[in-house]
């Protein structure tokens, strides 16, 4: 799509673009290029000389079971958060889409967690589930479970999943509600006249029509867990215990902070970059498909 009417100007458009381009080149492209370049280098133990080693950093990285464990944790984390927050958000959105009283009030009361920083969300849940003084911890202990997310890897993982899910429901709810409201009411009415029960109506009409939104949200949720849950993890578990809640991004941060292995850290970054590119490409194909509707 292009404008028919434009202005003339030789220098002006470049001047208008300069600030944005300068920032992207200096702070986006240059460091990304650096990461790629460093991922091919190995530094000696004293940082005195570097050697170009092609893919050796990647080979080393991918030969460590530790890395696969982190990958598995990240994928499990994504799947759980995406499934939980999408289904809860859909359940709420379907209810809020009905013509009931206070519908807009409920909407307001459900969307505000979007504004809560992931790290803050982590702190809120940590406080409730803190082993010695958390309110919910006490309730769980009363049920006979020895709850301790500080020491028990499964408990820690559960805590992080809950906090991440809680934070994302608002976003998913909003998009599901918008998707539901975009479905022509006449289609639903037609299926009602065709004698479909409300349950059947939902699964045979509403849900399929909602599938573009669901797919979009699925990708967004995976991206969210991969990249934006850093704050939640850092604030609640710090990746522990025993690296049970360490995601790929957290590992890059953590390994890099020790500062020992520049090349290995860069290789991790490059792999993450490829993951983002892959996820974005999937999202584009969705956008393209949507344009065709």
């Amino acid at each position: 799509m292009e404008k028919r009417v434009t202005f003339n100007g030789r220098l002006l458009p470049y001047m208008l673009l300069a600030p944005q381009l300068l920032i992207t080149l200096v702070f986006f492209y240059w460091p990304a290029g650096q990461a790629v370049w460093q991922s091919f280098l190995i530094e000696d133990a004293f940082g005195l000389s570097t050697q170009f080693v092609w893919f050796e950093n990647y080979q080393i990285l991918l030969s460590k079971p530790d890395y696969y464990r982190t990958l598995a944790i990240t994928l499990t984390f994504s799947a759980l958060v995406a499934f939980l927050s999408l289904s809860l958000a859909l359940l709420l959105a379907v209810q809020a889409d009905k013509h009931i009283k206070f519908a807009s009030g409920y909407k307001t009361m459900l969307i505000w967690p979007y504004a809560v920083a992931p790290a803050i969300a982590g702190v809120l849940w940590l406080f409730m589930f803190q082993p010695s003084l958390g309110l919910v911890s006490h309730a769980i202990r009363a049920l006979g479970v020895d709850w301790n997310p500080v020491l028990n890897p499964d408990h820690a993982f559960t805590l992080v999943v809950m906090a991440a899910t809680w934070k994302k429901i608002a976003y998913n709810f909003l998009f599901f509600l918008a998707g539901l409201q975009a479905i022509p009411k006449s289609v639903i009415e037609a299926s009602a006249i065709d004698g479909a029960s409300p349950m059947r109506r939902f699964w045979t009409i509403t849900f399929p029509l909602l599938s573009p939104t669901t797919f979009f949200l699925l990708v967004v949720n995976v991206v969210y867990v991969f990249f934006e849950t850093f704050g939640i993890i850092d604030a609640t578990t710090g990746g522990g215990p025993a690296k049970a809640t360490q995601t790929l991004v957290y590992k890059v941060y953590h390994d890099g902070k020790l500062g020992a292995d520049l090349g290995g850290s860069a290789a991790q970054s490059v792999i993450l970059m490829l993951i983002v590119i892959g996820l974005t490409a999937i999202q584009f194909r969705y956008v393209e498909k949507k344009v065709q509707y």
Partner: peptide
């Protein structure tokens, strides 16, 4: 013009999380 547009557009694929330390260094 389109090169400039894509240069901006592709930054979508470069969140800070994937280039933490090189950006820090700059």
């Amino acid at each position: 013009r389109m090169a400039a547009f894509w240069t901006i557009f592709i930054t979508l694929m470069l969140p800070v999380e994937v280039r933490i330390y090189p950006t820090y260094k700059i």
